[in-house]
Nucleic acid binder design. Structure first.
Lengths: 191, 191
DNA sequence: GCAAATTAATGATTTATTCAAG
DNA sequence: CTTGAATAAATCATTAATTTGC
């Protein structure tokens, strides 16, 4: 069954190489457009999904920072990001979209996509407002289905239009919510 | 501009009421299916997107906990939850998918969707494997575009098939170092 | 030599913190 | 000040390496 023998994504060496290449190029949190392109590209080398790409970047970045932190011990320096060719350390930790994303000549499309952010940052003219709900970096489980934005991009011929008239708008209310397991000082990282 | 997309989502009273009702019903982190239905339903009351629904639930839950925590000060009790009728507080903080999601008869669809998780957990028969990439709770900016899974669910007539043949696949040959940065230095597993 | 158990690596989720808009 | 939105951190779960017993 070459379909989905694993519940988890197993990156191929090529995919990994490309991802690392992009990471080294400065890509850390690609947008929806970026991810789409990256996924499309990596799909040629094996099974992969957008979430995999995003997760990879998240984990990789976090891991790198963690590694560096461990390396420095308790230096707790600013060490925001010390691998990019020349990152002037954004004054605001507000994210500061890639101020210098044109590292290489490769990944033109992806990097170009990121340019709009920069333009919005330094330009500030034209339409600084009105994100048009295009590159809003969501973070949830809708990609599987279809959101309003996505639906808008899909012709009506494909819209099943599920007229679900359920939803009683009433009930008792159970609730759950139970975690807060970090009360203790020491963590049980015994895994 | 009849759109007035105001950068931010402004929940209408009806939407808010329904959301709170659902939250009280025990819904805290709806799946993609859940969110789709909720969004579809709330869309009738005003502009809303899936991400709004998810974010609302996230914020609401977090806010509730924060509020409670603030209320108790440093009591750091277990304060699991104080609104639901009776939640047995799962022994494992492992998340424990809704073991008792059939709170009421309302939200049948949504709650039914969540059932599959429980079934997979306790049943384990039939096809325990093969998640089919249906309710994978991703968390990223693809809903705007379209993922492999989503694409598969969309008829070919709607697929623009963007044959982006960019991506050089090869560039300056950065090299493939993989993530083996654990050199031979000592003090690696300081834990 | 191979297989089962253990450890390490890493992909996937959830939670907490924070920023910005109203 | 309230609250939606976004990111980073922490954590869980599964796969791959490595080791040990047969």
């Amino acid at each position: 069954m070459p379909q989905t023998p694993s519940t988890r994504w197993c990156p191929t060496p090529e995919q990994l190489m490309i991802l690392e290449e992009m990471y080294r190029s400065g890509v850390r949190t690609p947008n929806a457009s970026q991810i789409q392109q990256i996924t499309a590209h990596l799909s040629l080398y094996g099974r992969i999904e957008g979430k995999n790409v995003f997760y990879w970047f998240q984990n990789h970045k976090a891991r790198e920072r963690q590694k560096l932190r461990r390396r420095l011990g308790c230096q707790h320096q600013l060490l925001h990001q010390s691998e990019g060719p020349s990152s002037p350390t954004p004054p605001l930790h507000n994210q500061t979209p890639p101020p210098n994303l044109l590292y290489q000549g490769c990944f033109q499309e992806v990097l170009t996509q990121g340019m709009n952010l920069v333009g919005k940052l330094e330009a500030g003219e034209g339409q600084e407002e009105e994100p048009a709900a295009s590159d809003a970096v969501y973070t949830q489980p809708w990609m599987t289905l279809m959101d309003g934005s996505a639906a808008a991009a899909v012709p009506p011929c494909c819209r099943p239009l599920k007229t679900l008239d359920l939803f009683p708008t009433k009930s008792t209310g159970i609730k759950d919510e139970c975690s807060s397991s970090k009360s203790s000082s020491c963590s049980t990282s015994t895994n």
